[in-house]
Every structure is written in structure tokens, then in C-alpha cells.
Design a protein around this nucleic acid. Structure first.
Length: 84
DNA sequence: GCTGAGCGA
């Protein structure tokens, strides 16, 4: 399941994000979006978890929670939308 | 060096 994480601290890295989510389950890949020019953090990232139950648990526990001193927002990334 | 809604190279 792809997870969208927003309002992250600008200093938070992908490693910290992955470690934070690994506490709830397996994390296949975690990535914080950085600006390709300045390499600065955009303040949000994506976390991919193979276990849906672990992903839901992580979302429920990490959504609107404090991380690195900031209240982050964790939601499902790119809600599956069937093409019309 | 910084700010704070939003969906990625």
C-alpha cells in the first residue's frame, strides 16, 4: 500500500521516515520528496508497505502524530481511481 | 537560514 506523508520536518530524511514506519511493520520503500534543483525537502514523502494491515495501523497511529517535532499527516497515497 | 499545503524522478 502506498502511503502519503505530509507536513514533515524539512530536515527529516527518507531513512528517518522508513525507520519511523518500520516500527509498525514491513517497509518496502520509503522516500521523502526533495527538490531536484536545491535538493531541499518538500516537506512530504511516500512510504510503501507490503502489509495492508500494517499500513493501516501505521496510518492510524502516525496520522496527525508528532514526528521529529512536527505534527505529520499520514494518508493513503494516490487513492485507487478506476479510469472512466 | 527560512516556510507549512500537499501527491513523487
Amino acid at each position: 500500500m502506498n502511503i502519503f506523508v505530509a507536513k514533515l520536518n524539512y530536515r527529516t530524511t527518507s531513512e528517518e521516515l522508513q525507520k519511523h514506519f518500520e516500527q509498525f511493520g514491513e517497509v518496502s520503500s520509503a522516500k521523502v520528496i526533495f527538490d531536484r534543483e536545491t535538493q531541499r525537502s518538500k516537506g512530504y514523502g511516500f512510504v510503501e508497505m507490503p502489509d495492508d494491515e500494517a499500513a493501516n495501523s501505521a496510518i492510524s497511529q502516525l496520522n496527525e502524530s508528532e514526528f521529529d517535532g512536527r505534527t505529520i499527516v499520514v494518508k493513503e497515497a494516490r487513492p485507487k481511481s478506476e479510469s472512466y
